[in-house]
Design a protein around this nucleic acid. Structure first.
Lengths: 211, 211
DNA sequence: GTCTATACGATGATAGAC
DNA sequence: GTCTATCATCGTATAGAC
């Protein structure tokens, strides 16, 4: 088996280490060490540590976002044809299911999805701004669909509730079984599919609560 | 007006800068610069940057947690006396309202609550571990109360839903009007009290959703 | 006890030789 | 494209003044 090229080796190492240790706790020296390339190769190929983060995001997030956007638009168009508003749970499902499918498609993808979850709730402006640029068009589409699904909610209320829902989603993606509660439950943790179902049920009930 | 002592000046500066820029983007030099103390004063008074973070947490979180614990126990005891399970929304309210009241008690407290919100969703293990130690007994009490309020939910499901709820709470605390959606809503943002009401309504509906 | 000045090793980043 | 050398800045540690 031939080694992937320098750029790919750096991306692979960075994705894994960013997801495991976080952006700021990952040094370029640890990335280049694991990728078996020279320290300066990162700056040559990507320009900076921050630009490397963006490249890591774009490699998988652009295709994944295309998938989610297609699913969302299918739901919206089907509702349009039927002459009734889309169902909130179908919209949420169109958003969540491709993410889960991607995560389960390959063992390496777990690290990427964890990184995405971290980034959705990241307070650090370096990481958050970089991620926000890539994800916001999709969030906007979801909000637009939910406005049609739940026309009784004032826009400000819906936006607030969507933020609640996205926060819950983010945590589910990055730490399916740990935080913010570290409590060691005696019962077995939920598997990926069951967790996604619970997430959809929870957020849907919250979004649809009387106003 | 006499200056507060060195230790307090460091705590004040650190609290503000940690909340604004995050733990890792705040250098000890910027803290000691703003506090107008010598760089080495941090290590003398607190031992390390991480120990300083813990001191910042403890200064306000220990009293606030006592308040929240009292409120939670009042709800639990009132239900006990009435011979019926506590209401989920009362438990959530006992948790959220003292937090909001503290935040509105003094302008400087806003930075601290933002820091707490950041810490609840913090991926970085330095910040999260330090914070978790202080907050987990309270989370445990809340979980315990919710188990009585919602006995029909299997423990694993309830724990999962509580994690969803806490994630939404965390974001509300640290960024009442911005993230993860940066979308500039045309409608006016909700004020603090209304936001808390929406949060209680959302999380309560999610927790009580059929299983 | 408090505080200051200063130094150390590691980091992200860059310039220039090859 | 790659690598070595170098830089400013980071958290930390310590010696010694007051």
């Amino acid at each position: 088996m031939s080694q992937p090229d320098t750029k790919t080796r750096i991306l692979d190492a960075a994705e894994q280490l960013f997801a495991r240790d976080g952006f700021h706790h990952t040094s370029l020296r640890s990335i280049t060490g694991q990728a078996k390339v020279n320290l300066a190769a990162v700056n040559y190929h990507f320009g900076s540590k921050e630009a490397l983060l963006q490249a890591v995001f774009e490699r998988h997030l652009l295709p994944l976002n295309r998938l989610r956007q297609e699913r969302l638009q299918q739901v919206l168009e089907a509702a349009e044809r039927a002459g009734r508003p889309p169902a909130a749970d179908r919209l949420l499902r169109a958003f969540i299911e491709p993410t889960l499918a991607f995560r389960q498609a390959h063992p390496n993808n777990r690290a990427f999805i964890a990184l995405i979850g971290r980034s959705m709730v990241e307070m650090d402006s370096t990481v958050r701004d970089c991620f926000s640029r890539l994800i916001e068009p999709l969030f906007r589409l979801l909000l637009c669909g939910l406005q049609r699904a739940l026309p009784q909610l004032p826009p400000a209320i819906l936006l607030t509730r969507l933020r609640f829902a996205l926060s819950a989603m983010a945590h589910t993606m990055c730490m399916p079984d740990r935080t913010p509660l570290q409590i060691d439950s005696s019962s077995a943790p939920l598997d990926g599919g069951e967790l996604a179902e619970q997430l959809i049920r929870f957020t849907c009930a919250g979004l649809e609560a009387p106003c």
